[in-house]
Design a binder for these strands. Structure first.
Ligand SMILES: [Zn+2]
Ligand SMILES: [Zn+2]
Ligand SMILES: [Zn+2]
Ligand SMILES: [Zn+2]
Lengths: 143, 143
DNA sequence: CTTGACCTTATAGTAGCTACAGGGTTTGCA
DNA sequence: TGCAAACCCTGTAGCTACTATAAGGTCAAG
């Protein structure tokens, strides 16, 4: 199949497929006489593997490693696999925590303005300006 | 003061300050005879304003707008300010939701492996391979 | 024989920095 | 006076994971 059909079947754009090939995540497929890429079923599965990992937020570098385990002797321990997943879980977890703090801060800032009123009176702008001048702010106040 | 001192006082690297100037977030300061940037107190406050907004996760484009409201007539309504903050809150909120789904999926995947064992037996790898072949997976199973 | 839908490569753009390379300036000290 | 350390300058490239062109080649239908 051509790249367009692979794209349609996986829901991944042709350009992304070419990008994965350039990045070494997908092996370079055979070419037709006119230079068109020709894919087979294994390519589709390899791409699906990548997309599935991507949908879990895994970075391409980790997916490369994960895919590489298929080339390793099957008797090796799987702890490196687990480590990659655990790392991803903790990355995601700390992002969540950071964003939750952010949301609280933003809501504290937002609460300074009970619109509608003018720019001169806006509690949000006043808070931001005050903080820039060194005053305590609603959002970063530790109390 | 020179750029290095402004950097030290704000905890922002010199290169970042120059970057903000290039991006039009900070006005170009006066220069010494040898071409060194010379900053005054207002610059420090403007930079602090930017950094404070950045710490709330605001994109530079929004900070540019937010800073621009200082040049607007003070009698204008502040609803555009509120809209920017509300937008940011909803961005952050939807990111949190997406990441929380991700974390659950990752933990479901992680639960397939009760290490230690081998690559051939690893439930994580088996799940990923199965999903690539079109089977249902622990992580994306809707049940 | 031409139109349209494919495909190819190469390059640049996105966000927000960060890290050089390759130079000039200023300060202090022997 | 000479020199080195610690500043500063510009310009460019790198990071992630794509996305979007530009400029061209190929193929099947009508
Ligand atoms: Zn307001
Ligand atoms: Zn604050
Ligand atoms: Zn395992
Ligand atoms: Zn899954």
């Amino acid at each position: 199949m051509q790249i367009g059909e692979l794209a349609k079947r996986t829901g991944c754009e042709s350009e992304t497929i070419r990008y994965y090939e350039r990045e070494g995540l997908l092996p370079a497929p055979a070419r037709s006489s006119s230079g068109y890429r020709r894919y087979e079923q294994p390519h589709l599965e390899q791409l699906a593997f990548i997309l599935h990992c991507r949908s879990l937020g895994m970075p391409l570098a980790d997916i490369r490693l994960l895919a590489g385990f298929h080339q390793q002797p099957a008797a090796e321990p799987c702890d490196r696999v687990n480590a990659l997943i655990d790392q991803q879980i903790s990355r995601v977890h700390s992002q969540i925590e950071a964003l939750q703090k952010l949301e609280i801060q933003l809501q504290q800032l937002r609460a300074r303005c009970d619109s509608p009123h003018t720019l001169a009176d806006c509690g949000i702008l006043k808070t931001l300006d005050g903080a820039a001048a060194g005053e305590a702010c609603a959002c970063h106040d530790e109390s």
